[in-house]
Computed example of a mutant assay.
Amino acid sequence: MLPIRPLALLGALLCAGVAQAQTANDCPQLPPDSSVRWEAQLGPDFVFCRAVDANGNQAFAVTLGRTATFKPRRVDRTGGRVTIDGNPTWWHAPDNDLMTGTMVRETLLELPTGDYAHIIVRANDEAALARSLRDAEALHFSDVRLGSK
């Protein structure tokens, strides 16, 4: 009976590795110099990707889906126009009464696939906000596919 257990453990480890590899492909490509990694949750018609640092703190998040989950308002625009993976867009700073002391920036991209990417950045200080915005603006979505269309 002992030889079966190591084989079962090896099989479980191989399956976990495959699941992790699939999850990594569901999220956009991070910039090479980024200090964050993806944690992903798959839904029926969306993927929620959290960019977390070495301490497990969320730097920003991306929700990829077939429908837009964020409705940008012109009055919430902040700063100048930016380009994310070839898509011109604006960052928005919506009211955040629920998150006093937290700076929030959001944007919405319509990807060439017809899917949407809602990017949200939350930070407690200007330096963290600048780092997360830099990483978010360097994302690449070219290999991201939401299930089969």
Rank of each mutant, 00 (worst) to 15 (best):
M1D: 08
L2H: 03
L2Y: 06
L2I: 08
I4P: 00
I4V: 15
I4L: 15
P6V: 10
L7R: 13
L9E: 00
L9F: 12
C15V: 15
A16N: 02
G17T: 07
A19M: 06
Q22G: 03
T23H: 14
T23C: 02
C27E: 04
P28Y: 07
P28F: 10
Q29T: 14
S34P: 02
R37E: 12
A40Q: 03
Q41V: 14
G43P: 00
F46K: 03
F46E: 09
F46Y: 08
V47K: 05
V47I: 06
F48L: 15
A51T: 09
V52L: 14
V52T: 11
N57L: 14
A59W: 02
F60E: 06
F60D: 06
A61H: 06
V62W: 02
V62Q: 05
G65E: 10
R66L: 02
F70L: 05
F70H: 03
F70W: 11
R73S: 08
R74I: 11
V75H: 07
T78W: 05
T78S: 12
G80K: 15
G80P: 00
G80W: 07
R81D: 04
R81N: 03
V82M: 01
I84E: 01
D85H: 04
D85A: 15
G86Y: 04
N87S: 06
P88Q: 11
T89F: 13
W90K: 04
H92K: 05
H92V: 01
A93H: 14
D95C: 03
D95T: 09
L98I: 01
M99P: 00
M103T: 12
M103P: 00
V104W: 01
T107W: 03
L108R: 13
L108K: 09
G114D: 07
G114M: 07
D115F: 01
D115H: 06
D115G: 01
A117M: 10
H118Q: 13
I119Q: 09
I120C: 00
V121N: 03
R122T: 15
N124L: 14
N124Q: 11
E126A: 15
A128D: 12
L129G: 08
R131P: 00
L133N: 01
R134G: 02
R134H: 07
A136Q: 10
A138I: 02
A138W: 02
L139D: 04
H140M: 04
S142A: 14
V144Q: 04
R145L: 08
G147M: 08
S148I: 08
S148T: 13
K149G: 04
